[in-house]
């Protein structure tokens, strides 16, 4: 635990934890640098935080295998993100990579997850997280949470469809499209209002309509299991998706019908 990156992790604040990785908020670069002109001594303020995704050691795996897998996954996630960036998909930028430690540093996105905005409760993989459900989730206000972002719920759904279509056109399949893996970036941030797709830990490259259809199916199920009246929401998402997929929509659409009937897994018979 003496490495540079572990010292960085030690200074970071944990944000959430899943089965595969812990997520931290940290400050990567010293403050003098950030505000290049004056004010050398004001700490965290004015500095931009980053998000650290730390794939911790899995003690149930053989150490050699663990290192190899972790390295491959950090690298894979970074590659999927850069491909998305180059294709104009809104994803967090990469800030640092340390495969030896299993750490991926990403741009901090200021905003809220779609899951929260739709009133789906706090994010987090219900079992593994402890009592860190403090934040914004339990504001019992009847006003539309999307008002703060200056858009309607339907606008947000269309933004989701657009972003997924851009990603699929780049032949990237996300692998875990859920409403908690989509963040609405606050309009006050430098890049303005955006729908940002996050967590490319399960992403892979594929040209197959089948894989893209399964991606959409996973999203449909995620909506159905976390949000009431999900059919209307999903319909908006798919409508925007269809508009942005162009001629690629038809094969995906046909596949999606098949997938809906049989579920995510293909039949292994034959």
């Amino acid at each position: 635990m003496e490495s540079a990156t572990s010292r960085l992790l030690a200074s970071a604040i944990q944000v959430s934890q899943g089965a595969e990785a812990k997520v931290f908020k940290a400050y990567l670069h010293p403050c003098e640098f950030a505000s290049s002109s004056t004010s050398p001594s004001d700490a965290s303020d004015g500095r931009t935080p980053i998000l650290l995704k730390y794939r911790f050691h899995k003690h149930y795996r053989h150490p050699t295998l663990d290192t190899t897998l972790t390295k491959a996954r950090v690298a894979g996630e970074a590659r999927a993100i850069i491909k998305c960036l180059r294709h104009g998909v809104n994803v967090p930028g990469i800030r640092m990579v340390d495969t030896a430690q299993g750490v991926l540093g990403l741009e901090w996105i200021d905003g809220k997850s779609i899951r929260l905005l739709l009133g789906g409760g706090a994010e987090g993989e219900d079992e593994t997280t402890e009592e860190e459900t403090e934040d914004d989730s339990h504001e019992i206000e009847e006003e539309d949470p999307f008002d703060e972002y200056g858009i309607s719920e339907d606008d947000a759904m269309r933004m989701i469809g657009t972003e997924i279509a851009k990603m699929h056109r780049a032949d990237i399949v996300h692998g875990d499209l859920t409403t908690s893996n989509m963040i609405l970036r606050h309009p006050s941030s430098a890049k303005g209002l955006q729908l940002v797709l996050i967590d490319f830990g399960l992403a892979y490259t594929s040209t197959l309509a089948e894989d893209k259809a399964v991606d959409l199916y996973v999203l449909e199920r995620a909506f159905a299991s976390t949000h009431p009246a999900s059919e209307l929401l999903v319909a908006s998402v798919l409508k925007a998706y269809q508009e942005h997929m162009g001629k690629e929509w038809l094969p995906v659409s046909k596949r999606l019908d098949d997938v809906r009937l049989r579920g995510r897994k293909r039949s292994m018979v034959g």
Binding site: A78, R79, I81, I82, I94, R95, M96, G105, K191
Partner: peptide
């Protein structure tokens, strides 16, 4: 320019694992 800067920064950050 913002888009270009983001791609450039990310490219540098992931240099060690670039495909």
């Amino acid at each position: 320019k913002l888009v270009a800067d983001e791609i450039v920064v990310s490219t540098v950050a992931m240099k060690s694992v670039a495909a």
